[in-house]
Design a protein around this nucleic acid. Structure first.
Lengths: 332, 332
DNA sequence: CTGAAAGCGCTTACAG
DNA sequence: CTGAAAGCGCTTACAG
């Protein structure tokens, strides 16, 4: 393939009768005489000139690229998060470089390094998993956004997952449920750990309440199977806390498949409150995470750090709230 | 911010005792003596060297970047499409540069030009809208993927939307419905136009059948309101064809809100068949588009064109199928 | 097979 | 305010 011809700043300079460096100054806001600036901008407009990002990155201190590490884009949680991150980045004139589960951690890291990202918004950290540590080792500024890591030397933002677990437990216990189950999120994720811990503690403190747990890995299919098994057991639970909304949908669907009425025979509480959950056909009682704010604060922490690398690390915890809808009720 | 120090090919060369161009040859598969190659690769491995993509882009004929233009990432249709596109690109060693509705068309085009994308997968073409034409005008190779444009000089792939409209109409008519409504997709989109035309034709050919139309713009909220209005009319339809699944979900939810039983009082057919539609709580009868194949064929058409710019334009139409689930039944 | 050199298109000191 | 020049880190002919 032949490189298609592109207008460069040299050609703009020639046509405007100035030095190439003057074109650069006009575009980057250096001091230029008004008349000169006008002449240059006229030629820029004439060709709709767009300076090469590759050349800029090569010479400049920043690439304007921010890596965003997620996992499965088809989990409805992530598009909401990515969109919010993208919006904030775009407001600041930054671009997003997406790393998903289409590639391995190894490949993702290599890509972000080759692309020279200025920083990374890491949303899917897992304890005992080296990717986040390796990134930091390569000197890439990073914010842990949504999922966090204990004692990790970086800025972090997350929802108050402890309160999330407590709110879910308190709600189900207050309704009178005692045979309770929990479908956990991905092992090693801070969100699952914190929600599980808080939920367990609250249930354990209640006379006569029993808790069964299953691993749902934040995955629809895994959770569906886990709930199917729970409902088929000798003493099925009357209430279920799922660590995210997607697993709660799986629970609702598995219950429907098993002929178990929600909420009459089974109460279900999720966690996230993605838009789907408000649909009449779903109408899920869930703990709302402030997703937009998590994204915005995450990006802002990262940008602050790019400005001031020596700032002490910050760790923001954002409030959650229980959203009551129609998937919970007192036990039969 | 200070540029953080990065290992370059010059340093690799020095440490391996070879010329910098030899390092480049090792990495890009030029002819190098096995012993030399080994020495270089040892040093590359020692530092986990990643060559700068910016420098590569600046000098090379290709950037390895493919623009992917979508609109709303939170419409569950797009994550599926983007993921499929990303997977194919990754198999070919290419990266994706995402343009969404977070930015204007103007900004998106400027970005793709600055980034020097090798080509663009355009998924959201609209008739009477200049973005696709302007891209082509800038000499950017392009494939119209999913939505197409009449007489547009580029490769195109789409589902057989005419058959989609016919299948939906035939199904509802066969069930005995005569008071039928259609919620149209975005005006100017080929998908909405083709589906509408075929559906109308089929209904018009049926004695006694009437068709009411509403604009849903492929948007949940718009469709919800449209269906609410339809159901509140003096002679509400007994069957509904929505031009995509998201609008069908809106219809199901609006029906639930209005106390209209589906399918007893209202049959609903969608179009897409995204994973959600198979959920027990939704269980939507819909026309399946081969999304993965649309994405794969789209990327392949584009890559073929990058290899051979003078190939005649191809236009692929992929088959659809009706997926019967529980949102349709004979009228009461 | 290997090295020296040119050059991709910019930004950024440095002079004037 | 403006221009000439260096240089970012690579790939790609071109010699040898």
């Amino acid at each position: 393939m032949v490189r298609r011809p592109t207008v460069t700043s040299v050609q703009i300079a020639r046509e405007a009768g100035v030095a190439q460096s003057t074109v650069s100054r006009v575009l980057n806001g250096g001091s230029v005489a008004p008349e000169t600036r006008r002449r240059v901008l006229d030629v820029v407009a004439k060709y709709d000139f767009q300076p090469s990002q590759a050349a800029r990155n090569l010479v400049g201190a920043r690439s304007g690229l921010i890596g965003v590490v997620i996992r499965d884009l088809t989990n409805p949680f992530y598009p909401v998060l990515v969109k919010a991150v993208e919006r904030v980045l775009h407001e600041r004139g930054l671009r997003l470089s997406l790393v998903t589960d289409v590639m391995s951690d190894e490949e993702g890291l290599a890509l972000l390094r080759r692309e020279g990202v200025d920083g990374v918004v890491f949303t899917s950290a897992i304890e005992q998993e080296p990717l986040a540590h390796r990134m930091l080792g390569h000197g890439i500024p990073m914010v842990l956004c949504h999922r966090t890591l204990r004692d990790f030397p970086a800025d972090q933002v997350e929802a108050d997952n402890t309160t999330a677990g407590e709110l879910a437990a308190a709600h189900l216990l207050d309704l009178g449920h005692r045979r309770i189950a929990m479908v956990r999120g991905l092992a090693g994720s801070s969100t699952a750990q914190q929600r599980a811990l808080a939920f367990r503690r609250k249930v354990a403190a209640t006379e006569g309440a029993t808790l069964t747990e299953a691993d749902g890995a934040y995955d629809y299919a895994t959770a569906y199977e886990a709930v199917r098994a729970l409902l088929a057991s000798a003493e099925p639970p009357t209430a279920l806390f799922c660590h995210n909304d997607v697993m709660a949908y799986a629970a609702l669907n598995a219950a429907a498949a098993a002929g178990v009425a929600v909420p009459a025979e089974l109460s279900v509480v999720g966690c996230d409150d993605v838009p789907l959950s408000a649909w009449e056909r779903i109408d899920l009682t869930t703990v709302r995470q402030p997703l937009e704010r998590i994204a915005r604060v995450g990006v802002e922490l990262l940008l602050d750090r790019l400005e001031s690398p020596d700032l002490p690390h910050r760790h923001e915890v954002l409030p959650v709230e229980l959203v009551l809808r129609s998937t919970t009720a007192p036990p039969a």
